[in-house]
Design a protein around this nucleic acid. Structure first.
Lengths: 234, 234
DNA sequence: TTATAAGTAGAACTTCCGTTCTTTGTCAAA
DNA sequence: TTTGACAAAGAACGGAAGTTCTACTTATAA
């Protein structure tokens, strides 16, 4: 485990207010690229008086978390912000897979599959990198692809708008696999757990509080097996 | 997450003055960590009139080099500021962050937070690797950690048993952030979208078909901001 | 030439924002 | 109790800073 050589001052020595102020400053700079004013800080941390914010900012200076430029609006800087270099250090030799993001998955349309030319012209640059450990083991390179979820119609699969699902292209599935299926009768794509039961197929939502649906096996066309789901909230 | 080729606008299309202004802004931010004022720019580029600087800044906005926040002092940001980062991505082409998996998140218990010593002794080896692109921008390394979800009590956050949530340690949040919160009155941990509404807080489930809950702000203790959710199905 | 736009200047105006001062309250040591 | 350090609150002051308006210049094209 790599430790940073520029030890950050002890955050736990700060008062509750000072910690909240520091959090807010970091957040604000992240969002705006410029520092907040005293009044903006006060509003966020629920301090009515500018002098109190000023007071606590000076405490943060003394504690070594920030620096201030006197008589300068937004004259504020985080001392320990240089993580960029460290990120570089953290680049690992992990087993990373670059996967093409070939399109969208929508409830009302079949799943686009690379190779099956749907006329989709996806950008060659549209790729996503994920650690191989998320994918399980024996996935051949060509048969893995990713789709961005469009809309919230697959909520019952615990998948929401803008999520990315990673699929393995295959037309059959084992019991218990999560699959993307195309239902011929209703003309819908869904993500479900797959169970073959005689001539029927039980499709079980990932949300275990919801009821499964039973469909004739010939109505079910498996588009691929779900390997992973990624959600970026930030 | 997606590698889009956002090419920098053509600098040669700018006038001499605009180029000097842009140069100065980049330099200034580098040195001060906050953007310059109109008058500081004018002084550096030898423009006596603030309106002329203002005029050229708007040109730079139109040309796609900067963004401005109206009525905000130093409300200035470079659009294409992270060339360095992008180079890094191109070279290593796998910008991977190794993140400690410090414990579990359960509905009935507070969120374990590294540093806040809960007596948790998590295994040093217990880490996960994820692409930095999933985390948003420059989150400091110490403050990011991951938890494995235990149980299906957070289904309404579209998170299921064995999922991994990546958190940024912080005690405040902006509206629209997804956060892990500890509700003092009920003694529960949940994952919700956060909205401050006066003295109250609206906690909105990720599943948009479900109703939000309203809680007094003092009953809400923010444990961290959710950066990403990972689900390995295979 | 004329006209229309682009660029430059200067000044006034209003708001923003850091600083300072006074007052009040709390807590622990003397 | 008194004292003093620390924390908080509110108000007021003055300078900082973005905006706007008008006027003057320089190109560029018709």
């Amino acid at each position: 485990m790599v430790h940073s050589n520029t030890a950050e001052p002890d955050r736990s020595k700060l008062s509750e207010r000072q910690r909240r102020i520091l959090d807010f400053i970091e957040n604000f700079i992240e969002n705006h690229s410029y520092p907040p004013t005293i009044r903006e800080i006060g509003e966020a941390v629920k301090i009515g008086s500018t002098s109190v914010v000023n007071y606590n900012l000076n405490k943060l200076v003394k504690a070594g978390f920030i620096e201030r430029a006197p008589d300068v609006s937004r004259g504020l800087r985080l001392v320990h912000e240089n993580e960029l270099e460290e990120v570089g250090v953290m680049v690992s030799h992990a087993n990373i897979r670059r996967i093409p993001l070939v399109g969208q998955i929508v409830a009302s349309e079949p799943v686009p599959i690379p190779g099956d030319d749907f006329g989709y012209n996806f950008d060659e640059d549209d790729t996503i990198e994920i650690p191989a450990q998320l994918l399980g083991k024996k996935t051949s390179r060509e048969s893995v692809y990713a789709l961005r979820v469009k809309g919230n119609s697959m909520i019952d699969a615990l998948v929401r708008d803008k999520d990315v699902v990673v699929l393995h292209r295959q037309e059959t599935a084992n019991n218990g696999d999560m699959v993307a299926v195309w239902l011929r009768d209703t003309g819908e794509t869904t993500l479900k757990y797959f169970y073959q039961e005689g001539g029927q197929v039980r499709l079980q939502p990932a949300n275990t509080t919801m009821e499964p649906i039973y469909v004739d096996a010939r109505q079910v066309q498996i588009q691929g097996k779900v390997l992973a789901v990624l959600r970026s909230v930030s």
